[in-house]
Design a protein around this nucleic acid. Structure first.
Lengths: 352, 352
DNA sequence: CGGGCCGCGTCAACCGGTTGACCAGATGGA
DNA sequence: TCCATCTGGTCAACCGGTTGACGCGGCCCG
């Protein structure tokens, strides 16, 4: 009955092992294992089952995470890497966690600074997680190694990949078109673009959307108003400053990202321009608690939580080597803030 | 030389194991293990070491996370549980991650909704992490089980515990005193309090700080202005609405939390009151990108990143059963926003 | 010439569960 | 009566690394 293991008291760690439970219940370790994981292949007397359960409770037994992971050859967890410090990731995390919980899996979240560090690559390829979700990576990321890793389902979230085609994104192009059309509908003709960094996939798609909408409305693009910057508040401030160096200024600006939009707004204000009095502003994505801000930023709200959900579903449901190219088709709604108004009559409709 | 393992190609998972590397390099698995983890107790010819290294690279070998964790009886990771969806956690996470990285550990982050779910309790007690950091738990949390767990260093972050004394907090009382004194220095006498939920440790301490500062200035507390609510924007809105039902209204409000402050601000506005024209507002904690908001909220900035750092250091450096009661003594600075002004002369200095 | 030590690894137990094969005794049907 | 089946488990290999004890040939030293 004693299977050679030292008792819990004798081992360094004070934790009870399955051998301790087996001994206490007077059964084989296999019985404990099977009872505790409800293995239908095991036939036990109800009384025995109870003894096992009681022994486990009495000893406060918890199966060892690593032993189980090793034996079952699966971690029971999914990993999510997000860019550090971006509040927009919060809903994505929430969505992924929801799906993980529904399936009895854990969600491990860790953050990166744009690229995959060697340390996280090692981790993901070490069997610590059963699937990996990579959100917000920069271009030229090192995820290729992961895609090549057999049997580790990996999915890019909110970024498309060049190599292995496994990604899920939002319809950034349409969102930006919507934003731009909204400004145009308010009478704006001179519209600037505070875009995202070159090489970042969403930045390209959003810029395409902007160009499309402008072209569709027959509006010219002043190259001085097309600026790229980081998706951060300080990036937005730089973008706005650049746009304002142009001899003619736009009556409205589309910001490719809400954090960036904040910076644009701030810089406009710093230059003595009122929003939306002098310049209107609309951004892609809505920041947490934006509804409580006064004034709040007008923006196109994208379903980030749903993106997180869908990403988790896809990575869990599809084979590791199946191509995944999904653009979430959802209702996109303009979240009315206070930063868009019609341009002053003097400039309205004018061609510069 | 072949130690009985099937080759990588034959096993289900396509990943190379240590046996594959050993075979390819023509050495024992032990050599591979020791070479790859720089075990000084091993003496090898440089040439052998190279063979091992090359074989490992060629096979893209990564040590199995679970096997290593099991054999070493340690996970190489620390766990951090934070309340879901609170942007204020972002710097705490960053601080803890910094320390973890410095020590070659991983930081696993997961979120909770106030209390510890059974699922995370199990996880933490299963050896999946070498230490646990619990941020922002509610009162009556179930962390006691963790504190009793031998050899799992556990630490409450930003919450004090009743039972086991292991916690690190900020000086919430002083921060609130500072905030209140700031309003008083601006001439406010009628000051309301939008506090946190009952039973939450920081809420109690901040409320103490508020009462202290008011008492020290010889100011009366109108019970109708002392309101408790959740640390959320909607909680703040409720709090403000309650305060405004009072026949006499305060000229300033201290919000115990920045998210809550946002809600207060919003509700004041909804009631037709301008901030700071009619009512001044100051909050504890500064939200990300607050500096870029126009107008921005005046607040007491607390060193959350440092809290995260210190928490990780303490939980890693001290024995699992050592008492830890630390209140971070730091410079607290008022972050000047636009939401505090002197009260209108009519009400100034008056006793209601 | 023999013993000890050094250089370079090998051996095998162990970490703590999991899982399919197997087995003893009781029951039951032919 | 005898074999088949069912009940209620036991047994042991296995997952993939880690680690301390041990082993062997060669050289040095007395």
């Amino acid at each position: 009955m004693n299977h050679g293991g030292r008792s819990a008291a004798l081992r360094g760690t004070g934790r009870a092992t399955i051998a301790d439970v087996a001994e206490q219940a007077g059964v084989d370790r296999a019985v404990v294992s099977k009872v505790l994981s409800d293995d239908p292949s095991l036939r036990v007397r109800e009384e025995t089952r109870q003894r096992v359960l009681e022994a486990a409770t009495a000893l406060r037994y918890r199966p060892n995470f690593h032993a189980r992971g090793l034996a079952r050859a699966q971690a029971g967890a999914i990993g999510l890497l997000v860019p550090a410090g971006n509040p927009l990731m919060v809903p994505i995390i929430a969505g992924a966690e929801e799906v993980a919980a529904e399936r009895g899996l854990l969600l491990w979240t860790a953050s990166h600074e744009g690229g995959l560090t060697e340390r996280y690559l090692r981790l993901l390829r070490s069997g610590a997680v059963d699937a990996a979700l990579l959100a917000g990576l920069r271009a030229g990321h090192d995820a290729d190694e992961l895609f090549r890793d057999p049997h580790l389902p990996t999915l890019l979230v909110n970024r498309r990949s060049v190599g292995a085609a496994r990604w899920v994104v939002l319809d950034d192009e349409r969102a930006t078109r919507l934003a731009t059309e909204y400004l145009i509908a308010h009478g704006h003709r001179r519209i600037g673009w505070a875009g995202g960094p070159a090489g970042v996939d969403t930045a390209e798609r959003r810029q395409d959307g902007f160009r499309d909408a402008m072209a569709a409305a027959g509006l010219e693009l002043d190259p001085a108003w097309i600026v790229r910057a980081e998706y951060t508040a300080s990036g937005g401030a730089e973008a706005a400053a650049t746009i304002l160096r142009s001899p003619v200024r736009p009556t409205a600006i589309v910001a490719a990202d809400a954090n960036e939009g904040l910076g644009v707004w701030h810089a406009l204000h710093a230059h003595g321009l009122s929003v939306p009095g002098d310049v209107s502003l609309i951004a892609i994505h809505k920041l947490p608690a934006e509804d409580y801000r006064i004034p709040s930023m007008t923006c196109v709200e994208m379903p980030l939580k749903q993106l997180g959900r869908r990403a988790a579903e896809l990575v869990l449901d599809l084979p590791w080597d199946a191509p995944i190219r999904e653009t979430l088709q959802t209702e996109l709604t303009i979240s009315d803030g206070t930063t868009v108004a019609s341009p002053p009559p003097a400039t309205r409709g004018g061609r510069f």
